[in-house]
Each structure stands twice: as C-alpha cells, then as structure tokens.
Amino acid sequence: MASNSASPAVSEAAAVAPIISLRDVTKRYGDGATAFLALKGIDLDIAQGDFVAVMGASGSGKSTTMNILGCLDVPTGGTFAFKGVHVETLDRDQRALLRRKYLGFVFQGFNLLARTTALENVELPLLYRGDAKGARRAAAMAALDKVGLANWWDHTPAELSGGQQQRVAIARAIVTSPAVLLADEPTGNLDSERSVEIMELLAGLNRDSGITVIMVTHEPDMAAFARTIVHFKDGLVERIDTQHHQGEVAL
C-alpha cells in the first residue's frame, strides 16, 4: 500500500478501516430459468485514499460491481459496508442521500446536461444539497478552477471539446468534496493525449485531495495510473495487483 505520493496519514487510516468493504457479494438478474448470476461472491476492501482501477472483460461483473459501489444498485446476497453503513439495508432514497453526500460520478459519455453552462452543470449537486446561491457559485467556480476550466464556465457542452466536457464532469463530481469518486471508463471516448490529461487530473485529485478514486478501464495504460488494480473474471475477483510506481507507463 505504500506509495511514492500518498500521504502516510491516509495510508494509516486505510489500514485501520477500509472505506468500502464487500463480503461475499452476489448479484442475480432475473428469476428461474432466465436467471443470470453476474456476481458470484465478491470479497473486496478498498482503503480510503486509494486509487483503484477495475479491469476485466465485458460480462466479468465489473460494471455490476461499480453499480453496487455507486449505491445505484444493491447486492442480491452478501454485505456492502460503506464507511461502516450497510448499504444493502438502505432504501432507494437513503442510498440517494448517501450518493449526494459521499460519492461523485464520472461517466464514459460525460453525461452533462445539454444547453446548460459548465458552471450550472457543476452547481447541480450543490443544488440538491440545498446550498445557498453564493456558496454554490463559489464552490462550482473553485471546482472548475481545479480542472483548469475556470475561464470556460459560461460554455455549454456543445461548445466544449470532449476532454473539456470530461473535465466539467469531473468538476461536477468533486464539487461536493466526496469521499469516493467513481469513474466508469472516463477516457473511453477520448484520444490518448486527452486521456492522459484526464488521468493526470484524477491522479492529482487522489494525491492532493485524498479522494478515493475507483475507475473502470479497459486500457492498461490508464490502469497504470492506479495504485491498486482489481481484475474481474466471470463474476469473481481474479486477482488484485498493487503498483508501487503509479503512472510509470504514461510518464
């Protein structure tokens, strides 16, 4: 778990209690003859402040796991503890409140609201938190500044490049200072140069703000930025690698 950039405090906290803990998690879709077991019993601990890459072929269960980690879905069996809270016991709205407070999402397709300025997109999560207008504006501008788009705040997604859109999406994900940032193939729609920029941004956020980053990716180059790489196969965790030289491939 030791790394060249993570602060010792984060590592220590992680050693004490993982922020995410999956135990024998199963997920079944459908019933009877058409039932399909997507997860066959996952055990996974993720330490606070870690940078995790999730890899695996399609159908290996990584997306299902991400949905469960994102509190968008609940396991059929097993337990999922997030900061000690058993998510499988929460209802829909309780999980929504958990997402609002602790989670940030970055998607492959950016998923920004169309015809809405970068600033308004970033403000959206704060709106649901009920922040006052002035505080909202300031926090959103600060987040845009972190992703290097402070000067583009009044542009709509249609006026931004793919890389810029993904930066806005990252700003939206981090504006609430979440504990965990979940990124589902964040570079999947970008060229390699843009991809590296996004990965450096995520790595920087992980390093400087201590946000736990969990990212699904197909590309080993991108996974190289992570500290921990979880390999999925056939609904099970195949192996977990720990890298001591993050980002070496790209650098």
């Binding site: 994102g70 409140l97 997402r99 609002r100 999402f105 998923n111 609201l113 649901y128 938190r129 939206r172």
Partner: peptide, 16 residues
C-alpha cells in the same frame, strides 16, 4: 431519461 439518470446518480431523491 438520461438527464433524470444523472440527477438520480448525483443524489437527487425520487421525490425531488
């Protein structure tokens, strides 16, 4: 639909 999905993902409760 996708917009609603985004809103739900970033923490909007169904009532909102």
């Amino acid at each position: 639909t996708r917009e609603i999905g985004i809103r739900l993902a970033i923490g909007a409760v169904a009532g909102e």
